[in-house]
């Protein structure tokens, strides 16, 4: 069993992407052997009001609800975001995706604290995207720096009941907060932006498999990349299962 904790659907604003609609994406999952995927709408990145993006997602994936797990894009820096959050939860979203760098707030800001409180109340997983793609390739009129991750530990410490996944995080950023990750069981990283030789193996040695989840960042990235990273790693069966699905399943059960 494999659960992809970092996928999107919909319209990516800067380039045409194949497999970004539900039917095609499920076919891609079938080819790659991915059982389920947590999906959020790309449109949530740049829309001011994210509700239409989330509405689209929930409707579009309805025929594939056994495979696609809806995550809502939420901007806690937008007026009346609580309504968007509530509607997303009512619509079946079991997680929310945050894009602090696109929505102009930092992890230490009060708006995030408010959102975390709501996530706690509704048993919703919070995934935070540190970036969406390589800063060197950004559209020259839309250059967005990565999220500073240093406050992630403080947020996780304050809300131990909420599972937090740091998405699109690079190896050096993980190492910078490795102590926090090791000590906070509700703080996870996913592997889609992990690089270097033997990256997954090294990461397991550094922070333990209990803090790592499988993520592909598909369809923006080739789904095969994260799978090959796992193939490259020699892991115990227990660690492999934890990363591929057991850690993610634990949140879903809690939700």
């Amino acid at each position: 069993m494999i659960i992809d904790c970092n996928a999107h659907l919909g319209h990516w604003p800067f380039r045409h992407l194949e497999n970004s609609q539900p039917d095609d994406f499920v076919a891609l999952m079938d080819r790659c052997g991915v059982t389920q995927a947590c999906v959020a709408p790309f449109q949530g990145l740049l829309y001011g009001d994210v509700r239409p993006a989330n509405d689209w997602l929930i409707e579009a994936i309805a025929p594939h609800r056994d495979r696609l797990i809806p995550h809502a894009a939420i901007n806690p820096n937008f007026p009346d975001w609580e309504r968007d959050f509530g509607e997303a939860v009512d619509g079946g979203c079991v997680g929310v995706r945050l894009y602090p760098n696109y929505h102009s707030y930092e992890l230490g800001d009060g708006c995030l604290t408010d959102l975390m409180a709501a996530a706690k109340e509704h048993s919703v997983t919070v995934s935070i995207h540190l970036r969406m793609y390589d800063e060197r390739l950004h559209h020259p009129r839309c250059m967005v720096p990565p999220v500073a991750v240093t406050e992630a530990g403080a947020v996780a410490l304050k809300f131990p009941e909420v599972s937090i996944v740091l998405c699109n995080i690079k190896t050096a950023e993980i190492m910078g907060i490795a102590e926090d990750i090791r000590s906070l069981p509700n703080l996870y990283v996913e592997i889609s932006n992990l690089e270097g030789t033997g990256g997954v193996e090294k990461l397991v040695a550094e922070i333990g498999a209990a803090s790592i989840v499988f993520g592909t960042h598909a369809p923006y990235q080739y789904m095969d990349a994260a799978l090959l990273k796992m193939k490259e790693a020699v892991l115990s069966e227990e660690d492999s299962a934890a990363i591929f699905y057991k850690n993610a399943q634990a949140w879903m059960t809690a939700a």
Partner: peptide
């Protein structure tokens, strides 16, 4: 490699 992963880059061809 070593800056990049054999795996992530191989996927560009395997997954194409």
């Amino acid at each position: 490699a070593s800056g990049r992963s054999f795996a992530s880059q191989l996927a560009k061809v395997i997954g194409a």
